[in-house]
């Protein structure tokens, strides 16, 4: 662990004007629906986000852990703890736009109470500095080659995002991010024919970050 920490400190210490690293904790709000409207969860959790920018190249990573309780009127009987990892690698193709690829990996505990998902992200994002130290972001990702713990396929899956990064004072930044995910999952239980089992998740993250 020590060499990794030393490597992180080294990278942070070497940050040049052309590169910026932000890292910080986030509070997470999430709601999750699956298969039918009656199967819905909502919850609160924590996470962390890290972003590295080097000239036109950027790398973002987010880890969240949310305890999803059954919502009012939900048919679900048990809370689920969802752990999600998102990562993007972007390349600026214009002063206000970049193309990005990434991955998403969400696991649920207990495993069978909600779907665990893994997919590749392909998309683009637009960002704009609306003021000194304030950047707003909008992204749209296609989730390709999704895998589900309960099986099935998803020919159409999208992930939309809204992000905000505001420099509050010196190196301290305030961050907020919203993500909406729609996965058109189809399953074929017992070989009787495909049925729709869509998944829909919204996540809101608010936090602080230090920039180097």
């Amino acid at each position: 662990m020590r060499p990794a920490a030393a490597a992180v400190l080294f990278v942070l210490g070497q940050a040049a004007p052309a590169q910026q690293i932000t890292i910080g904790p986030q509070a997470v709000l999430a709601s999750y629906r699956e298969v039918v409207s009656g199967l819905r969860y909502a919850g609160f959790g924590f996470g962390g986000a890290m972003s590295v920018r080097f000239h036109k190249l950027s790398v973002d990573g987010v880890v969240t852990r949310v305890k999803l309780d059954t919502a009012d009127g939900s048919a679900a009987t048990q809370s689920v703890t969802a752990t999600q990892f998102d990562a993007w690698v972007g390349y600026d193709v214009a002063p206000y736009a970049s193309l990005e690829v990434g991955v998403i990996r969400r696991t649920a505990d207990p495993e069978l109470d909600a779907q665990s998902v893994g997919a590749v992200r392909l998309g683009a994002r637009s960002f704009y500095e609306i003021g000194p130290g304030a950047t707003i972001l909008f992204r749209a990702n296609y989730l390709a080659a999704p895998r589900f713990s309960g099986g099935g396929r998803a020919p159409f899956s999208l992930d939309l995002g809204l992000g905000l990064d505001v420099r509050l004072a010196g190196r301290l930044h305030g961050t907020a991010a919203y993500a909406f995910q729609r996965i058109n999952r189809k399953t074929n239980p017992g070989g009787a024919g495909e049925i729709d089992a869509p998944i829909q998740e919204t996540v809101g993250r608010v936090g602080l970050a230090l920039a180097f």
Partner: peptide, 21 residues
């Protein structure tokens, strides 16, 4: 993009982040 079969959510997450923006 909201699924009709899943119904409309509360959008509290969008309200928080969108409001902040």
């Amino acid at each position: 993009l909201e699924s009709s079969s899943l119904g409309s959510g509360s959008k509290r997450e969008l309200a928080v982040v969108g409001g902040a923006a």
